[in-house]
Write a protein that binds this DNA or RNA. Structure first.
Length: 931
RNA sequence: GCGAGGGUAGCCAAGCCAGGCCAACGGCGCCAGACUUAAGAUCUGGUCUUCAGUAGUUCAUGGGUUCGAAUCCCACCCCUCGCACCA
């Protein structure tokens, strides 16, 4: 409790000392380490889930700083994009939900909230809040380098980046189908949808049938089934359009006309034609030349494809049933299904078989969709075209579909027609979403095979933590295709060669890690002087520094600062960014920077839960980081977030668990201060020191591998349990002066995780300077003492054994006798320990003449020893095998043992004793008799 | 559906890649004892079943390989993340 008050008082003071110290400049005498995090989009308050993302890199930064590296840990704010525009609009409209979120959960003061009708005000407000909370948490950030992505200097940087990427032909105008809301006049993303977020854009082929002077396009996903067409379907209720589409005369539905226009086709309406006028007329397939009849069908939906469909009754269950129904009425009985695909499990006409097998009564049966899907999938994966398919006979469905599509589109005037897989896809504005082809949109071509290949080649050189994410990166690199990188609205940088567009937010944040290296200096240069040539020199060393708009000394200074820090060593981010940002930045680094400046490492985090549930601001299930820091103290928050799981694992914030972390810190505080009075020496000092070396080594190794949880296990739990044993072993409880050294090491081991506490303790225990810059402890191998660790280990185990016996024993104990194993059993132990094959070790033991002479006794001992050896750690086994004087150890610790069990303890040799238990004595496992 | 990762005792979680050091590190919670006027803190012990320090059954589920599997192989179920005009 009292510590809490102390921490609240001292935190601000320590913070004040820190901030200027963490401003990091190039230092040629030191190795550098540059870590950075995916910067936040400050549109709301930080919650504990965000906390870990920034705290882990800070722990890493602090660790390496203490190990002597010149560390750079910068931070900036990503304010590009559209979300805040929406927020500002909603606040202006006094939207209740938004006001409640910002005024309530985020606790924005009323007068500030009123100014939130301006988007920039929002991001600036929260950027400041982020910085404040990050400072409160003690993040060792160089705040001079802070920037936002809409300052003019940064925009100049982005312009420079894209002159290169564009110059390499990697940014192209593309035609690409997108979900689009005609009402908002904008593409819609997943989170812009009110309904239908599972719908996909389907790509149909229009196959053409000649109908007098017109053509009838039929939309299909299976163009190869053209060989099985028996008829067309038209809905007699529908009024169709006669239209000129891209100069050709087509018959289509009105809906199709609308869609075609959105898909960049020119549609001129010539007139209408009733559905009934089509029925029973003939149309000729432009591909096969086959003449087919147009039959009536009520299921044909004008709002689907062209509004007219072709019928393949042998393979399409719907077509089969529709035809069956007509034929049962005695109509069109001359039509027979034409099978064109053979597929395992079906004989002649798969659609007929599957429908009849499932006894489908009519088209409205709810099972129809599933059956259709089943058959389509089977045919696609296993089907082969038969002899009805002309030159495509024998091909797989997969192959034939590709080939036929190509022929259609290249030779037969077919088009690809895009349609949502569901009709109810609704924009947030309430209107229906269509597929639109944006023809004036800029794309970054991540689909470029050569570029992908180059990125693949870089990846093996990038250290990935944890290594398992490598597969996901590889998949992402392969999977990425054209990425639309421009948009009409939002904050950000204009596309230099087409200024009516802005760069989209994921595209203007791919190489800003390089910008950090100079951000604090470049901000002093007027933006108009920051031509691409200036950046070319700073980042690529190209051109003549004397001929630039910025003076030579300045650009050289920037150049050398960049070269000092770059490439960055580690980038930290949550795992959800692998599929976009983290992979994008690899592409851009590869496109812009030379081999030696490619990223060196990435650390990918797991996600955060709050009390077992997903954190979500909109659902109110969040715990603000600032509240956590105020309630528990910065160190507690840090230690919990870093220690509850390894960085790449998901973690769960639970207040009751956090509280116990707080107690642990308080306990350490007390232990360290208590040690101040230690003096003199004790026989156990060497043991404690020896153990400490291993804790240091363990924590160091763990932190090197970003295993913050493991590091804490060593640095906190390990040390605490060692200290407990140490104190327990001391006869009078007075520790030796060596404890002060141990504590000094301990505090330093913990400093990266709980820097405030460590800083305060460092000062209180009489050290000068900041612990943040103190030397990280180094394990001294010469202080590792296997003998004393072995003897303490023996005592620990023996005490445990005695106590478990005392618990079980029924009699009222008076004394404990311990029988130490005889010398010949040590021989057995050594033989067993060195045997490679423990299965036949009894034979080996019995091969010894002296042991053989002992007969069954020796054989039994050998069997028991094998079991014992299996249960001991290897270093103990080898130490015991080398020799151990158990009698001496127990005799020396007699007082301790008696204190522990509260009984008289007698140590005697098993050899010669007539007590039956004595025979079970083994090396490192004395026989214990309670009597 | 597809891609990636994961399921270990009341909870969190180590171990798995390189099979025997595994009843399975550690922490939390819980129980008991010590200390204390008491509470808290601290210390000690316990926490699958059984037991003179042992043994038995466990590591999502079902098979398999092996003298031996939490660890390797196959199948199946469940969870998390991603699946793109977006932070």
């Amino acid at each position: 409790m009292t510590e809490n008050l102390i921490m609240n008082e001292i935190e601000p003071e320590i913070r004040k000392t820190w901030i200027p110290q963490f401003e990091s400049n190039p230092n040629p005498t030191k190795d550098k380490l540059y870590v950075n995090v995916a910067f936040p989009y400050p549109s709301g308050a930080m919650h504990v889930g965000h906390g870990r993302t920034y705290i882990i890199p800070d722990v890493v930064a602090r660790f390496w700083r203490m190990r002597g590296k010149q560390v750079l840990f910068p931070m900036a704010f990503h304010v590009t994009g559209a979300p805040v525009l929406g927020i500002a609009k909603r606040i202006a409209k006094k939207d209740e939900k938004t006001l409640k979120l910002y005024g309530g959960l985020y606790r924005v003061p009323q007068d500030t909230l009123e100014k939130f009708t301006d988007p920039v005000t929002i991001v600036n407000y929260f950027a400041d809040e982020y910085q404040r909370v990050m400072q409160q948490l003690g993040l060792s950030i160089d705040w001079r380098r802070r920037f936002t992505t809409i300052i003019p200097q940064y925009s100049k940087f982005i312009e420079w980046q894209y002159t290169h990427v564009y110059g390499q032909g990697k940014v192209q105008k593309g035609e690409y189908p997108v979900r689009y809301c005609p009402n908002c006049d904008q593409p819609v993303g997943d989170h812009d949808l009110l309904e239908g977020d599972t719908a996909e854009i389907m790509h149909y082929v229009f196959v053409m049938f000649r109908f007098g002077e017109f053509e009838i396009p039929c939309a299909t996903l299976r163009p190869e089934t053209i060989f099985g067409v028996t008829n067309l379907w038209a809905n007699p209720e529908t009024e169709h359009l006669k239209a000129e589409v891209d100069g050709k005369k087509w018959i289509i539905s009105k809906d199709a006309a609308l869609k075609l226009r959105m898909q960049k086709h020119e549609v001129k309406e010539l007139g209408t034609i009733a559905g009934t006028e089509l029925i029973d007329k003939k149309a000729v397939c432009t591909y096969t030349g086959k003449e087919v009849t147009i039959l009536p069908a009520s299921f044909v939906d004008p709002d689907m494809g062209s509004g007219l469909v072709m019928s393949v009754p042998a393979h399409a269950p719907f077509d089969y049933i529709a035809l069956r129904d007509l034929q049962q009425q005695g109509k069109y009985t001359d039509i027979t299904p034409i099978t064109l695909v053979t597929v395992p499990g079906y004989k002649s006409t798969p659609a007929a078989e599957i429908v009849e097998k499932n006894r489908i009564p009519n088209q409205d049966d709810p099972r129809m969709d599933a059956l259709t899907q089943e058959l389509y999938t089977l045919e696609f994966s296993k089907g082969k075209l038969n002899d009805n398919c002309g030159k495509h006979a024998g091909k797989s469905v997969r192959q034939a579909r590709e080939d036929v599509t190509k022929e259609f589109t290249e030779e037969k005037g077919s088009i690809i027609f895009h349609e949502m897989s569901q009709k109810r896809v609704i924009c947030r504005c309430g209107n229906r979403v269509y597929v639109k082809i944006l023809d004036d949109q800029w794309f970054i071509n991540y689909g470029d095979a050569a570029w992908k290949q180059q990125v693949h080649e870089v990846m093996p050189n990038v250290e990935l933590v944890p290594p398992e994410v490598s597969a996901e990166f590889d998949r992402t690199i392969d999977w990425l295709r054209e990425w639309p990188c421009s948009r009409r609205v939002g904050l950000g940088t204009h596309v230099p060669w087409d200024p009516k567009w802005l760069f989209e937010p994921l595209s203007d944040s791919t190489i800003y890690m390089a910008y950090y290296t100079i951000s604090h200096k470049i901000v002093k240069i007027p933006p108009e002087k920051l031509t691409p040539a200036v950046f070319d020199y700073i980042f690529l060393g190209k051109g003549n520094p004397k001929e630039l708009p910025v003076d030579e000394a300045t650009v050289n200074d920037l150049r050398s600062e960049f070269l000092y820090w770059y490439p960055y060593d580690y980038r930290f981010s949550a795992k959800d960014l692998i599929s976009n940002h983290l992979t994008f930045q690899m592409f851009h680094h590869r496109a812009i920077f030379p081999d030696e400046l490619q990223p060196k490492g990435m650390v990918v985090f797991g996600m955060g839960l709050l009390n077992g549930m997903k954190m979500s601001s909109s659902k109110g299930n969040v715990f603000l980081l600032e509240d956590a820091a105020n309630e528990f103290g910065a160190d507690t928050v840090r230690m919990f977030l870093v220690g509850s799981a390894e960085p790449w694992q998901d973690f769960d914030w639970r207040n009751e668990l956090v509280l116990s972390v707080k107690k642990q810190i308080e306990r350490m505080w007390q232990l360290v201060l208590d040690a101040e009075s230690a003096s003199g020496t004790t026989p156990i000092d060497a043991w404690l020191v020896s153990r400490m070396q291993q804790r240091i080594a363990g924590a160091t190794t763990a932190l090197t591998k970003f295993q913050t949880r493991q590091a804490l296990q060593e640095a906190y739990n390990g040390v605490v349990s060692d200290l407990a044993w140490y104190r327990r072993r001391l006869a009078d409880g007075a520790p030796g002066a060596v404890l002060k050294d141990v504590m000094s090491q301990w505090v330093r081991l913990m400093a990266p995780v709980i820097p405030y506490t460590a800083e305060a303790l460092w000062k209180k225990t009489g050290h000068d300077g900041l612990i943040s810059f103190a030397d990280w402890p180094v394990a001294d191998e010469s202080k590792i003492n296997p003998q004393i660790e072995l003897s303490e280990g023996l005592l620990q185990r023996t005490v445990e054994d005695i106590q478990s016996i005392l618990k079980l024993v029924q009699i009222e104990a008076k004394r404990v006798r311990m029988f130490v194993a005889p010398e010949w059993k040590h021989q057995v132990f050594s033989i067993v320990a060195s045997a490679e094959d423990k299965r036949n070790v009894v034979k080996t033991v019995m091969a010894d003449e002296a042991l053989h002479a002992r007969g069954k006794e020796a054989a039994d001992a050998a069997v028991q020893t094998v079991r014992l050896v299996h249960s001991l750690p290897p270093q103990i086994v080898s130490a015991v095998a080398e020799g151990i004087d158990e009698t001496a150890i127990f005799t020396a610790a007699k007082a301790f043992l008696e204190k522990e069990c509260g009984l008289e303890v007698e140590v005697c040799a098993a050899e010669g004793s007539d007590h039956p238990k004595a025979r079970s004595a083994l090396p490192f496992k004395p026989a214990i008799v309670v009597e």
